[in-house]
Nucleic acid binder design. Structure first.
Lengths: 149, 149
DNA sequence: TATTGTTATACTCTATAACTATA
DNA sequence: TATAGTTATAGAGTATAACAATA
């Protein structure tokens, strides 16, 4: 007998991510941010910043792309860049008080967005979903491009 | 006791979708396509084309954005547009033989991509994952932006 | 007036290549 | 030479606003 006709999981994943991503974009925009800025802020707050290269990897973008965003964030007064006295090639990126404020606002928006998405799900289901997504991502990254962390 | 610390499901979803989406982009590009072109081709092949507005909704983009893609596809010889004699405001979009060929190539790439992602998953798990994703998308679209179909 | 679609324009995110500064 | 980062440039995808054609 023929295999059951299931909508390609890639299509379902892409569609859900698009819908959820747009909703998240709007939530972040309403709070004065965007997804790349949010990812950069999270990385700066939650891990030791070695250098911009690592930051770019954590966010999943190229170094030049990170520079582009940091330029905007610096102009907006969210971060400052200064050279590391110990190795003047390295630019130390630090959050300003305004950057901290924005982080908190975006964190609130992100939490609200997450709660909205979790509605109707048990903790077990969310854990299962996260496990599925992790496994699926691993399938696609074998020896290939790394996942942002 | 404190709730277990779970990575926000929105972050996991966005990260997985980004990784999977990039892998899919590469697969489609290798076959001579892109995600928007693939979505447009699917819609043209699998449903009756009422008009471009509906096509844009199905793909989840604005009408002007669709025009942008159709211009490229027409230049590439994938589709033709002609006015509907019954209602000359409507432009009927039809696939050329070349468009059909590209559809087949992209379908192969999409199937291969799907098989890659499903590796290690049982059919039951895939069905469960699809169900989770559908429910999550519904949570985010209540009375808001519609999901592409 | 309402509907269908196009044109004009611009923005965001991303990337590669060439470059500067430092080691 | 190698490493860290920036600048210059470009391309893909998307959007809004104004417009033309048709009803």
């Amino acid at each position: 007998m023929p295999a059951p006709v299931t909508a390609p999981i890639g299509v379902v994943l892409a569609r859900t991510a698009k819908t959820a991503g747009r909703a998240f974009d709007q939530a972040l925009a309403a709070a004065g941010g965007s997804q790349p800025v949010w990812q950069i802020l999270i990385s700066l707050k939650t891990r030791p910043v070695a250098n911009q290269r690592e930051l770019a990897d954590a966010v999943g973008i190229q170094g030049a792309t990170l520079t582009h965003h940091l330029n905007g964030m610096e102009t907006a007064g969210l971060v400052t860049r200064r050279r590391d006295p110990a190795n003047r090639r390295v630019h130390l990126v630090t959050l300003t008080p305004q950057g901290d404020e924005l982080f908190l606002r975006l964190a609130s928006a992100a939490i609200a967005h997450d709660e909205r998405m979790r509605k109707g799900f048990t903790d077990t289901e969310i854990a299962q979903l996260a496990d599925f997504l992790h496994r699926m991502a691993a399938n696609v990254t074998e020896d290939g491009a790394e996942q942002p962390s």
